[in-house]
């Protein structure tokens, strides 16, 4: 499954905090992928690659991103990108 609870959190030392959930982004990505699938199939015929295999690989990569974490702790701002 794709990391639905992933988010980006920015925390500034002055106190403000921004939390951005990535769920809408994943949803948009899935919708765009579904809409473009026929075009990818046609392109796959021309290039000699399987669209199903390409989509399966992409899905596997998205699913594998779960538990990926990037955290930067600066004196001014703390940034946390989490694919939970």
């Amino acid at each position: 499954m794709i990391p639905l609870r992933s988010s980006v959190v920015l925390h500034h030392r002055s106190g403000w905090r921004v939390w951005v959930p990535l769920f809408p982004f994943w949803l948009l990505l899935i919708l765009v992928g579904a809409v473009l699938f026929p075009l990818v199939v046609l392109a796959g015929f021309a290039l000699g690659i399987s669209a199903v295999r390409a989509y399966a690989t992409g899905w596997r990569i998205l699913s594998a991103m779960k538990h990926t974490l990037v955290e930067v702790d600066d004196p001014e701002v703390h940034v946390r990108l989490s694919f939970a």
Binding site: G48, I61, A64, L69, P75
Partner: peptide
């Protein structure tokens, strides 16, 4: 100013990523 960076990458992501090589057309 001191800066700390912490990155955690799942092994499964690396394994899935290497499969991209097989998708490159001839």
């Amino acid at each position: 100013n001191p800066t700390k960076v912490n990155i955690r990458v799942p092994m499964q992501l690396l394994r899935s990523g290497v499969r991209l090589v097989s998708l490159i057309p001839a």
